[in-house]
Design a protein around this nucleic acid. Structure first.
Length: 260
DNA sequence: TAGCCAAGGTCCATTGAGTA
DNA sequence: TACTCAATGGACCTTGGCTA
């Protein structure tokens, strides 16, 4: 029986595994080609502006994997604790907020959105009862700015569609065949709500749930040893949410160790 | 040009939201 | 509360770009 402070994984468990992220690495390029300079500036001055000033995002799958293997048992379900070089370090909501600059205060409440209509969906995807992220990607890439095919809606709507694409494909790390959240569309359509919304918590909870579950073996009711061994041999897994903040946190933690 | 690796694509079992 | 079915996430496969 494991108690608080114990390692969850043996050192030689799943050591050859690799973690991946299935969001859009090229989000800046995808979105930039869709927007005019004024719209691009508006996006960079908005609530997600930081993410459009980054040079680019680089995913370190092996680094994340090796740190995840050093997780230890903790009684706090809202963070993750690791033991690295004999020292305990904690990845928390506060750390995520500092790294991303996104609001992480209260818990997320969607109740107010239930009665609202999804205007953006009605106008730009008429007749569709659900929109896949691939549909939105196709819409954005097939209306490049400055060409005969460029977007004909309002300036604000162009920025809103770009924002929705960014939230779903980057902050949520969704694959293209997954649905665009109606809630996200409604929040982004409301300027005031969008700038005050708790994006950090939404994205942190997604990331934490994914980090906590990706290496855990499936609940194996059978006592079959072969099944358990097979589970250990899995060679890859996908991380959801925005794991780049976790990468930055890892690098910061290593720097602190280096200085001591 | 072969081999490697990361990114993108797809299948399917599980999950969870909606409804009676 | 039980049931149904669409959405999701895990796992694996394919593609494409890079390098030696």
């Amino acid at each position: 029986v494991l108690v608080e402070g114990d390692r969850i994984f043996e050192f030689d468990d799943w050591r050859n595994s690799m973690s991946y992220w299935k969001g859009d690495f090229q989000y800046k390029k995808t979105i930039k080609s869709f927007l005019s300079n004024t719209q691009w500036k508006k996006l960079r001055d908005g609530v997600f502006g930081n993410f459009f000033r980054l040079q680019g995002v680089k995913f370190c799958g092996r680094l994340i994997h090796s740190v995840l293997l050093s997780e230890i048992i903790s009684n706090d379900s809202h963070s993750m604790t690791f033991k690295v070089f004999y020292r305990e370090v904690k990845f928390t909501r506060e750390a995520f907020q500092i790294i991303t600059g996104l609001k992480c205060s209260s818990s997320v409440d969607f109740k107010v959105l239930r009665e609202r209509e999804n205007r953006l969906s009605k106008v730009y995807f008429p007749g569709k009862d659900r929109i896949e992220l691939g549909d939105l990607w196709h819409f954005i890439t097939s209306h490049p700015y400055g060409t005969t095919a460029s977007f004909v809606g309002s300036h604000d709507d162009a920025v809103k569609l770009a924002t929705i694409y960014f939230v779903e494909s980057v902050l949520m790390g969704k694959r293209k065949n997954r649905n665009v959240s109606e809630r996200v569309m409604k929040i982004v359509d409301d300027d005031e709500l969008c700038s005050s919304f708790n994006w950090g918590s939404l994205c942190y909870e997604k990331l934490l749930k994914s980090l906590k579950s990706c290496l855990k073996p499936k609940q194996n009711t059978s006592e079959n040893e072969n099944e358990k061994e097979k589970d250990k041999e899995k060679d890859s897994y996908t991380i959801l949410g925005f794991p780049f903040a976790f990468c930055v946190w890892i690098m910061e933690v290593f720097l602190i160790f280096q200085e001591k």
